[in-house]
């Protein structure tokens, strides 16, 4: 089973290039003037984390969170 995660963005590293949003299979990320994440759409595939040119994204396990 895929470990359920949420994606966290490091504002100091992110350039708002939109690459993560473009690659997300489920529209769980929107990059406009700011970076937005929609947990309900995320399928924990972590494509965005690997793809980020600067490593600004992190997958944080949801387990243990309420």
């Amino acid at each position: 089973m895929v470990e359920k995660v949420k994606i966290v963005m490091d504002e100091d590293r992110c350039y708002l290039c939109g690459g993560c949003a473009g690659m997300c299979p489920t529209l769980a990320i929107n990059v406009g003037p700011k970076w937005e994440f929609f947990l309900d759409r995320c399928i924990s595939c972590k494509i965005c984390v690997t793809a980020c040119p600067v490593g600004a994204l992190k997958a944080v396990p949801l387990e243990g969170e309420s």
């Binding site: 939109g18 690459g19 949003a21 473009g22 690659m23 929107n30 690997t50 980020c52 040119p53």
Partner: peptide, 26 residues
């Protein structure tokens, strides 16, 4: 609206491509 296009996807156009079909650039 660029690589991060939302408009096409809202309209129901499938713009999905697997991650291997993208380059990451710096």
């Amino acid at each position: 609206d660029g690589v991060e296009s939302m408009v096409a996807r809202w309209a129901g156009i499938n713009t999905y491509a697997p991650p291997h079909e993208f380059d990451s650039a710096y």
